[in-house]
């Protein structure tokens, strides 16, 4: 099977500081990949590059066979304009650490915003689908609530529904449970587990090692902007090859 997301020697700098150092990674269709590593390792930055919220300085990043943010025309890499780049993002769902729900819209309106105003789907149809998604997230009764009336866990599940409403090919999760109270983490992880079970391709930046082990097909350990080690969860989390992975895991376990 071909790779759905593939990164080849991706580098990114903030000024002189190298935040991504030759990151190469392939994620196949239906695969769940967890990115782990200490803070400042570049995990979130890499995720944001996949969605073209950040530009990369060198290397190639492809989603579903298309370069992210660029178009190859012969020997020239042409940067996509804002409209073309926005169109690409439709296929890539993203869930943020701080939820970033639209506070002036109800849960239902948050979910229908994209389908109606980006995809141009009729309101009744978009609402029907949004209700289904909210039901699936266990939030059927909360569709009329505003984000500030919801708990953190509920907000994050609305955010997942909002991303799913665009029918993305891949879902990116940027530390989706880091801003949650410990007792609310479980409900969000459950929703993500269901999603993985339904065959969604997911790339997850997380500190939840137990969840990574249970759900991931592949775990990637990053440090200092580079991929240090990649492997199946049991092997990588139980018996890492690299000493940096060992030190990190001993600290989080």
């Amino acid at each position: 099977m071909t790779a759905l997301v593939s990164a080849t020697n991706v580098c990114k700098y903030y000024g002189a500081h190298k935040v991504l150092d030759n990151v190469t990674l392939e994620v196949r269709h239906g695969e769940v990949v967890c990115l782990i590593g200490p803070s400042g390792a570049g995990k979130s930055t890499f995720l944001r590059c996949i969605n073209h919220l950040e530009k990369i300085n060198s290397g190639y990043l492809e989603v579903a066979g298309k370069l992210v943010g660029y178009k190859r025309e012969g020997s020239i890499l042409r940067e996509l304009n804002e409209r073309e780049a926005s169109k690409q993002r439709i296929d890539i769902g993203m869930v943020f650490q701080n939820f970033n729900l639209f506070p002036h819209r109800t849960a239902l309106e948050n979910v229908t915003e994209g389908p109606i105003h980006v995809k141009g789907i009729d309101r009744p149809e978009a609402e029907k689908r949004a209700r289904e998604l909210l039901d699936r997230m266990g939030l059927g009764a909360k569709s009329k609530s505003y984000p500030r009336q919801l708990s953190g866990g509920q907000q994050q599940r609305v955010a997942i529904a909002r991303a799913l409403a665009m029918d993305p090919k891949v879902m990116l999760f940027d530390e989706p449970t880091s801003a949650l109270d410990p007792e609310l983490v479980g409900e969000v992880l459950d929703s993500m587990r269901d999603l993985a079970g339904q065959g969604m391709t997911m790339i997850i930046v997380t500190h939840e090692m137990k969840f990574a082990r249970e759900v991931a097909d592949m775990v990637v350990f990053m440090d200092d902007g580079a991929v240090v080690e990649t492997g199946v969860p049991d092997a990588l989390l139980e018996d890492p090859e690299h000493h940096r992975t060992k030190t990190f895991l001993s600290r989080v376990h």
Binding site: N51, L53, E82, R83, S86, K87, R89, I90, I92, G93, M94, F96, N98, N100, L101, F102, P103, H104, E113, G114, H117, V118, K119, A159, R162, A163, A165, M166
Partner: peptide, 27 residues
């Protein structure tokens, strides 16, 4: 308006002008 609102709106495929009109300006 928080930067996260711009990012969330762009992540669902909104163009810059739509992000302004529908998400940022109303807030």
């Amino acid at each position: 308006v928080d930067q996260g609102q711009h990012e969330a709106a762009r992540s669902i495929g909104m163009s810059t002008s739509k992000v302004m009109r529908r998400i940022v300006l109303p807030q």
